[in-house]
Design a protein around this nucleic acid. Structure first.
Lengths: 149, 149
DNA sequence: ACCTTCTGGTTGTACGGTCGAACCATGTCC
DNA sequence: GGACATGGTTCGACCGTACAACCAGAAGGT
């Protein structure tokens, strides 16, 4: 596929990442790569909430790496859908605690299922002997990126 | 980082990809992950043009996986910056051929350099023995994604 | 030749995600 | 108690993308 490139050539890595990004359609904002009618950030937010049960809004902001204003609006949309409810933090009068409603839990489950199916199909297309390596690679990349940013 | 997960668990792959996407800040539209003051799509377009020298607009559309209207506007911006010029295709009266201007070539070179530096730093943060694997992983992912979409 | 259909591009319109700044309330520290 | 920091909200703006309508040139059939 890619032209001759050593593994130590930055251009090779760049090309590989760029290809991946484009293929996944990560610049298309209003649809999740898995085809769900929900924005990527919303999907991520739902994932975090489903996983943690309860989450401080500021913590969600940190995890999503967005501005607090953006997250505020984002959460507003999710509550608008009836998926999330806000509550006052007990230990901090300023804080907002986010929690999934029953409908939200259902939605998160559906999202997770769709995602699981999509990724299961994807996984099927990855030769079995490559899987562990691929998985590992993304972790390595994320850590490396965080490490020197 | 992630909890115990087998390499055959779709959720593991999903989590790995999600983490990577967020870490790279791919939702920030008007800055390239490398910190350049240019949109991701513009950067990709410049890369393609620099690589091919000449490119039919429709081909660029295909490679960037965008709508033709979006690309038309995108190209308009690049010509506005004086980086790209449009010409009539010789073999097709409808077609538009895109070419970098000298300034565009310079800009592309600067972008490439910034990208190279960023990825070189990133590469430095990746243990040497992981590099080939990481590189390979992105290719595998892209192919797998294309394969069953 | 003519008509139809397809294809490459452009323009208008709308939508939606993100940011920055201004502002408020609460917590924290000296 | 005053100064500063922190968590949230609201407002205004920007920009990338999609969809639809439209146009002009190409391709193919009759």
């Amino acid at each position: 596929m890619s032209r001759k490139h050593s593994a130590d050539d930055p251009a090779a890595l760049q090309a590989a990442v760029a290809g991946f990004v484009r293929a996944f359609g990560l610049h298309q904002t209003e649809t999740t790569p898995c085809g769900q009618p929900i924005s990527v950030s919303e999907a991520h937010a739902m994932g975090e909430l489903a996983q943690d049960g309860e989450l401080r809004q500021v913590e969600l902001t940190r995890r999503l790496r967005l501005q607090k204003s953006t997250v505020s609006r984002l959460v507003g949309q999710l509550t608008g859908r009836g998926w999330v409810e806000r509550a006052q933090a007990e230990d901090d009068g300023r804080g907002v605690v986010l929690r999934l409603t029953p409908a939200g839990r259902q939605a998160a489950q559906n999202l997770a299922e769709a995602r699981r199916e999509r990724f299961a199909r994807l996984l099927d297309s990855i030769p079995a002997h490559e899987r562990a390596g691929v998985l590992h690679a993304f972790d390595v990349m994320r850590e490396a990126w965080d490490g020197d940013r």
